[in-house]
Simulated assay, not measured.
Amino acid sequence: MAPQDALTGWDENATAEAYEAFTRIHPMYNVTSLDLAGRAGLADAGLVVDLCGGAGATARAILGLVPDRARVVSVDSSGAMQRVGRRSLSDPRLSWITAPAEQLDAHVPAGGVDAVVCNSAIWKADVAAVFAAVARVLRPGGRFVFNIGGGFAGVHHPDERTVRTGPSLNTLIHLVAARDHGYTPPPKGTDTAPKLPLETVTTELAAAGLALVETEVTAQHGTMAEKKAWLSIPVFARPAGGGFTHAQRMEILDAAYSLTTPDTPTVTSWLVAVAQRPVDTP
């Protein structure tokens, strides 16, 4: 299998199948989905959008909180992810739209959406265009709830320092790749600036006419076994560079994982944001 990346590799059957299997076996995406859905104020919602919804993990969490009369629309640009999702998630309240997040407003009514929820994906979109589309579809008072990985947002929960016991699996992967495969890691300090810090989020939300009403840095606790399973998904496999095939990356992952123990605790930080279309918006 040729290497894939986390921006362009989602519309592949192998990625979709691996991702769906991960969400079924491991709690990571289900936990973050429940967290975001719980912040969206869904008790009286009539129409909710699961943006960049993938195979439906977040839609499942939303469906558990909305009324029976509500409609949920899962929007994603990957037909492969949605095909997998349709197999495992069948609910008459849920519909699937294959489209880029930036084109959300072409598929749902302007001013008719009670909440938009986006789990783990806003960083890979055109943020300004997505925020503008979300602002157009939200009703006055409607909520936009999303999260950004700590590395992309430049935030770290204190638990990262107190819980971690040894090097991360990513660190070990790069060490093994350098030791056994001649891989040269990028120089230290290369591309270390956060891709989507809170300052940028706040500025872009304001430009779209949305108000940031809540932020929190959360910690998600897992294990090294879960991290290995996540890094086995083709779009997340490491090292990202070096010209390795997926098979070679899995070989490196296995060697790095052998230097750990399955129940070694891991911590992932998230920046969670809740924005709102102002009530007095015309």
Rank of each mutant, 00 (worst) to 15 (best):
H26G: 03
T192F: 08
H181V: 03
A256V: 10
V267A: 06
L172N: 01
E199K: 11
G243I: 05
L7T: 10
H157V: 01
Y183V: 07
G151V: 07
D263K: 11
D180R: 06
T218N: 13
V127Y: 07
A193G: 05
H26K: 10
L210T: 02
G209L: 08
M81E: 00
L175W: 06
L7E: 02
S269K: 11
P100L: 07
S269P: 04
H157S: 04
L172T: 02
A40H: 06
A55I: 07
V217S: 12
R86F: 07
A193S: 09
D35T: 09
P3Q: 01
V235C: 15
D68K: 09
S258T: 12
A37T: 12
V145E: 09
R164S: 14
S88D: 12
A110C: 06
R164H: 14
T23L: 08
R139D: 05
T264Y: 08
L198F: 14
T165V: 11
T190W: 12
V72F: 04
I148C: 08
V127Q: 08
L231C: 08
T162G: 04
P239C: 10
D50N: 14
D105C: 03
G142A: 13
L259M: 14
L212H: 06
K227D: 13
E160Q: 12
R179T: 11
R249L: 07
F152S: 11
T32S: 14
Q4R: 15
R39T: 05
V49M: 10
A178N: 04
T245K: 02
P27R: 14
A125V: 15
A37N: 11
T261Y: 13
A206T: 10
W270V: 00
N147P: 01
A237I: 05
A59N: 05
S232Y: 07
D105Q: 05
D68H: 11
T281R: 13
D254K: 15
A125Y: 02
T32H: 05
I233K: 14
E20R: 15
S258M: 09
T215S: 08
D11K: 13
W123G: 03
R249S: 00
T266G: 05
T15L: 02
V217A: 04
G56P: 10
T190R: 15
S74Y: 00
A207C: 05
S269A: 01
S90A: 14
E226A: 08
D35E: 13
D76G: 03
I122E: 04
P27G: 09
M250G: 04
A133I: 04
I97M: 12
G41I: 01
D280V: 06
W270Y: 15
G142V: 09
F146G: 02
R179A: 13
N170R: 11
L210F: 00
Q276A: 09
T98G: 04
L7A: 11
G53Y: 12
S120G: 06
L94M: 13
Y183C: 04
